[in-house]
Design a protein around this nucleic acid. Structure first.
Lengths: 196, 196
DNA sequence: CGCGACGTTGATTTGCCTCAACGATTGTGG
DNA sequence: CCACAATCGTTGAGGCAAATCAACGTCGCG
């Protein structure tokens, strides 16, 4: 396992002594998941947070009708979990799956609580992470209630080009809350405009 | 000024020595705002976070077209700020206004950073707060992309009855991202259903 | 090779918006 | 304290955006 990416992510926000770094690494576990493999299923309690070292994961909600609503994508250098289930120890609403072969670092809830105690600067690290996640989601809500589908689509591909590379049109539609068919016509319309 | 509500909120998550508590209180400022008064205007840098001791505030985005998109409401016992502007020290996208006469406790960015240093358990407090805020916004995004307007309306009034008491229909529509007219017809339709 | 998922296109339907008009309520200046 | 203006919620007519359903070509995969 390779913790360099994760460590350099952490060091953007806090500094660790070499002892602390060592302790942290001893708490991390490594796992590889292949495309379409699941790391969390709706109904189970999510007791792990995942850091994507390589590959791409997606978290989504499966409605009774069988439709999927994508909550988030996680590419290289992103954390992902069902934070609701994780913090409240309630059954997960979300599924989390790899949408390509991926290498993942993981830390359990129990070990994270210990980590907070032994290395309090991780409180700061996750305080910053959650604040940023909150800001992102707030901006997403703003987009959802303010802009048309078309505008939201182009704002998305501008904001997350690295995700667009990795993820099918269908999943982007599911993230935006529209049908794949409609996304297709939006693209076509704008292609014509560009050419003329 | 009365800090009891805020202190009891904090003590749900962390414990403070009496010295720490005293220091914290010395950093807090008190302000009263009357209905329609603004505490933040789009374009200004937001360097304060606000805790609502009594009353109700709302944060919203004003589009070029003059439409307003409500990002959040803050009632008694809630924090509110433009966190994007606050953490990045960039011009605020949001306006924050009192929608009824309100009593507010405030702490500036500078003082908050000091507080983190002097009383590190506040890292934990805000870590938990931001995590919860993140979860809430994620669930909101899920609602936005998964459910119809009608379903979202009833989920909202069920989830936030205390907000519904305080806030006009127009603002709820603006929070849900629909027109007040349409919300009106949704209500009417369901009133008829209940009666029959 | 053949099956199944994906992206595309078109016809039809539906949800929601726009605009306009109206009473009811709130707020405000004389 | 009243008269007037302004805002809010409601209702209806008409239009547009997006969903649904169905059909088809393409590609990756077993």
């Amino acid at each position: 396992m390779n913790v360099n990416l994760l460590l350099s992510n952490i060091k953007k926000h806090i500094t660790l002594s070499s002892l602390e770094e060592q302790y942290f690494c001893s708490q991390i576990t490594y796992l590889q998941v292949s495309k379409n493999e699941s790391v969390l299923q709706q109904g189970n309690i999510c007791n792990t947070i995942y850091f994507v070292d390589s590959g791409t994961l997606s978290a989504f909600y499966r409605t009774k009708g069988g439709k999927e609503s994508t909550i988030m994508f996680a590419i290289r250098d992103w954390w992902i979990t069902d934070l609701y289930s994780f913090t409240n120890e309630k059954p997960a609403m979300l599924d989390i799956e790899a949408i390509e072969d991926s290498s993942i670092l993981a830390i359990s809830n129990v070990k994270l609580q210990l980590l907070y105690q032994k290395v309090p600067s991780f409180e700061k690290y996750f305080r910053i992470l959650f604040a940023n996640a909150y800001i992102r989601e707030q901006l997403r809500a703003l987009d959802n209630i303010t802009f048309t589908t078309e505008e939201r689509y182009f704002r998305f591909i501008e904001k997350y080009p690295q995700i667009v590379e990795k993820v099918s049109q269908k999943r982007i539609a599911s993230y935006l809350g529209v049908t794949p068919e409609f996304l297709s016509t939006v693209k076509k319309k704008n292609k014509r405009l560009k050419l003329s």
